[in-house]
Write a protein that binds this DNA or RNA. Structure first.
Lengths: 209, 209
DNA sequence: ATAAGCAGTGAATCATTATTCATTTCTTGT
DNA sequence: ACAAGAAATGAATAATGATTCACTGCTTAT
């Protein structure tokens, strides 16, 4: 035996893997999953197409990993927003705002995660992702019910409605035919986010403000 | 000139075309667009694959037509529900209920129309379709604002939220991996529809009931 | 009956990309 | 320096289904 995997090699491989991930992320953030061809990713990462398959089982697998990573990043941000000061209703509002605003800041990636037509395997990941958001919201709603700042309701159902209302409201503005071509003014973005949130908070609290 | 298209022939062609449409509809209602292969549709309709192309430009075109037909049927039903007696809020509630209940009655078709990943051209049709719903709701909301039974708000934005909240709430229960395998009891369906609608109506009116 | 022209046919073609794998290049321990 | 293995390569392959088109067979008007 002459060759034995060494630390240096392990690192080099890890780097290549990371480079592939980064380049895939970039491709997706640029044109969605559909347009992210293996050859293009390989080219960007400076490896041969075959090399991709030494690091990932398949294209779907690679995409699933990107999806999870990107998702986790977003979900974490929303979770973080839920830790701000204030009662549960205030925290929820902050979280909803975080969700919507981040989506508008990276529209193509948001579209890819929320609405782009994808293969069944990725679609499953997407359901997990939407569930993750819904669960965060659900928890906050329950807290609010306990605190008394949100009236009693089916927290799970309401959280699902929240995710749907936001996602639907964003799909139009995020659609890649529009995004990039039309630049949505910041003031419009704010108005959009505000009105989404008003609807959502009313839906939750049954209270106008 | 010896052959001239006659009424009989025109009808026969129209029949073939209709048969193709019907069979495509059936395929889609059974397994969504993705699984509706041209060969299968042709087989069901009792024509050769080539014949499909004498009636439709392409698969996408055929699908677009099915999509529009199926959509129109649904939108009409919702529009009809909006003509019932009562104030705008009551009418809206009836419409939302119609939307949700019909979706649960034909889950696979509903999924195909609402959530199935489809090609870009169909995706465009889908946006039109969602817009159509949103516009109906929007009109009703404006009516409600005038009547005074719904508080002043961005009707367009609210209508979008309504569509999103309902669609999202249904996606889980409609998902084809579940639908057909798990049979949702009628009582659960009713509960689901009720809680979706409660959220939506609160979101609109800012009033608990 | 016949010829002209259209409708129907379905096997063969095409297009698109992900994936493979025989070959080459690089690493390592002796 | 060398042999043993591992990693990288990328041209060739595979798989999938939509679409085509040269041909067959009806319909029609005379």
């Amino acid at each position: 035996m002459a060759y034995r995997e060494t630390e240096k090699m392990r690192q080099r491989k890890a780097q290549a893997r990371q480079r592939i991930i980064d380049c895939t992320y970039e491709c997706v953030a640029n044109g969605g999953f559909r347009s992210a061809r293996i050859t293009r990713i390989a080219g960007l990462a400076g490896v041969a197409t075959g090399t991709i398959y030494r690091h990932f089982e398949s294209r779907e697998d690679l995409f699933a990993e990107i999806f999870r990573t990107a998702t986790q990043r977003e979900v974490d941000k929303v979770a973080e927003a839920l830790t701000t000061d204030g009662d549960a209703a205030v925290r929820l509002e902050a979280a909803l705002r975080q969700f919507a605003e981040r989506a508008m800041r990276g529209p193509m990636m948001a579209w890819a995660l929320i609405a782009e037509p994808v293969d069944p395997k990725l679609e499953e990941e997407r359901l997990v992702y939407r569930r993750a958001y819904a669960e965060l919201f659900e928890k906050a709603i329950r807290d609010g019910i306990e605190e008394g700042c949100i009236p009693d309701q089916d927290a799970r159902q309401s959280s699902t409605c929240l995710v749907g209302a936001i996602a639907e409201s964003l799909v139009g503005p995020l659609s890649p035919t529009l995004a990039g071509q039309i630049t949505i003014a910041d003031i419009d973005k704010n108005k959009l986010v505000d009105s989404i949130i008003r609807f959502c908070m009313q839906g939750l609290t049954g209270t106008r403000r």
